[in-house]
Nucleic acid binder design. Structure first.
Lengths: 333, 333
DNA sequence: TCCTAGCACTTTTAATTTATGAGTGCTAAA
DNA sequence: TTTAGCACTCATAAATTAAAAGTGCTAGGA
């Protein structure tokens, strides 16, 4: 693959991508000839070749060159050298994961917030609550006359709680039902609970529990809410305001932010998720052609999902990729 | 108070404020003379008077008039007529509160998201978890060898859960401790638990529980995290992108968004909180002189806090105030 | 065959000018 | 007290100009 380009062409492409990522200005031949030992004319002719190959573009006839989408792609596939993370940042992130008070999902959330701040890009975690969780236990805590709290715990340590309003129902009967549930359907996958509830519990409480209708309905409700996907929240959407090529174009920013608030768009980020790091440059993603999404899947005993960093196409790929990798490592251990 | 102005002056001021809120353009005398039966010259002289009084301003010598900060203040204090909410919006909000599955704080959060969408302003709820909550019950669910989940429930129905990592500790001993806590310190205000833990529980488990050191520390940790203020999140910060007087000024937007992410700034919004609706126009708030904060306190049996709507100074006061009032009603019942 | 100096040409960007229009303040008369 | 009329101000937009940054191409040199 790499023999598509001469060594010098590769060097030039790399320099242009990195220079442009840094300066946000089309890169001129003159600038490069300082770093390579040759004249600007030579570079110009090489640049013309690279443009021919579809790796560079011009913004107008006499402008410097800018990487094309293919140019970025070639860069990340063949030229990029990963950039090790700043030790301090690494430490900060690790500290978050070492806080054993926190659920894993909170650690992920928190560290992605930190990453958003240090990179100036948006970040997101998708689908951290695995629905393959199995029911571990349910508890009921009566609050007052007619309301109680139902707490549902899964084997992976995920906890949810719901209010349950039941007027004129004896606490005894509710507890009986809880006992039945804990005996009969513990170990069931969360999203199959309602089925079991209907076919295994309902008949039984129908016999032994008074006011079974009301109680059954209340519990059915509690578990059906569980199936709702938990809402995903992109962190640092407004970081796009800090990116020069966006800040001159409010409409674009608005457009991108709107996309980042759209559940469906986010859902698509999860699709075709590979185990290693995937880079969706420009048209590869469904957010905006000037945006890049870098994402990876993670999978642990308790959780599973995708984390992604979202920024301009002109992203610091070398830095972001190694950060994301570092995150993945941290999560998975 | 209102006799500061003649009836006609009041009418003109009201028209100018409302026109400007709608059009975002300085209001000319010509425009007004269509609505009042008099010539533009007459209006001009009245406008000059109102400017004299500090209620109007010009953007340049020959421009139309714009309300001054005092002008807005006079408007909201004396001239504004509340605008009833759209029936559909009211219904939508009410439905959220009628969903008995949800905790009150979730209802508030959800409905403020809706309000942010229909108004195009940012919203926030501050300090919904009252630390006057009393401990109702704690539960422990073992997950595996060395980790368990502690669930803390308060009398107001607030639930929190924490991971607790304890290696080589017998479950029996932990359960004993839980039993002690549930017997001895239930009913204690959340933020006093650690004190009680130290002076009442520690001595006892010191006697009766083996490995008390480790267990005590773990529980101490669980409760000390509780005192952390829950993080407040402003909804719809990017709505400022949709406000014309901001969208021409990215720096301003960035500045405002940064403020809205600053915990301290948000905390100040809660201060001097009155029971009724408070309007902080421009310099009255600590966000930006072109921003207005409209807020009110709410207090229910279970929760207490402040909700606020944050938008440009050129805010639809009549609409927002009645919405906020409606929200308060809904929350408190 | 490859590199480079040189030059014509293109386009952007910023600065300047010009013109137009919206709006005011003031005056004098109704 | 109101209003018509007019001179004046300033913002905005369009048009012009000038300078700067780059490129492509060519022809000569290594």
């Amino acid at each position: 693959m790499e023999n598509m380009l001469t060594e010098r062409q590769a060097k030039i492409l790399k320099l242009i991508v990195e220079e442009y990522i840094q300066s946000v200005k089309p890169v001129s031949s003159k600038l490069l000839c300082k770093r390579l030992k040759c004249s600007s004319a030579t570079i110009r002719s090489e640049m013309a070749n690279l443009e021919e190959l579809g790796l560079l573009e011009k913004t107008h006839t006499s402008s410097g060159r800018v990487p094309s989408e293919q140019g970025y792609r070639f860069y990340v596939d063949h030229l990029m050298v990963l950039k090790k993370m700043n030790a301090e940042d690494m430490l900060n992130l690790q500290l978050i994961f070492q806080n054993q008070q926190l659920q894993l999902s909170d650690c992920i959330q928190k560290s992605l917030e930190v990453i958003s701040d240090i990179t100036n890009y948006a970040t997101v975690v998708l689908g951290t609550t695995s629905h393959e969780n199995l029911l571990k236990q349910i508890d009921v805590v009566p609050l007052n006359e007619n309301s109680m709290i139902v707490i549902v715990i899964t084997d992976k340590g995920h906890v949810e709680h719901k209010n349950m309003v039941l007027s004129d129902v004896s606490l005894e009967e509710v507890k009986k039902t809880v006992g039945l549930i804990n005996n009969l359907i513990v170990g069931t996958p969360i999203d199959e609970i309602n089925k079991k509830l209907e076919f295994e519990i309902k008949p039984i409480i129908g016999k032994y529990v008074s006011q079974h209708e009301q109680i059954y309905n209340a519990f059915y409700h509690v578990f059906s809410d569980f199936t709702n996907p938990n809402k995903t929240n992109v962190v640092g959407k407004s970081k796009f305001l800090n990116q020069p090529e966006f800040s001159s174009n409010i409409d674009k920013i608005r457009q991108v932010i709107t996309k980042l608030e759209d559940e469906n768009v986010l859902k698509e980020i999860r699709e075709d998720d590979e185990n290693n790091i995937t880079i969706l440059i420009g048209k590869d993603n469904n957010i905006d052609e000037d945006v890049t999404v870098i994402k990876t899947k993670f999978k642990t005993a308790t959780e599973e999902g995708t984390i992604a960093i979202i920024g301009p196409k002109r992203m610091e790929y070398d830095r972001v990729v190694s950060m994301l990798d570092f995150m993945k490592q941290n999560i998975e251990k």
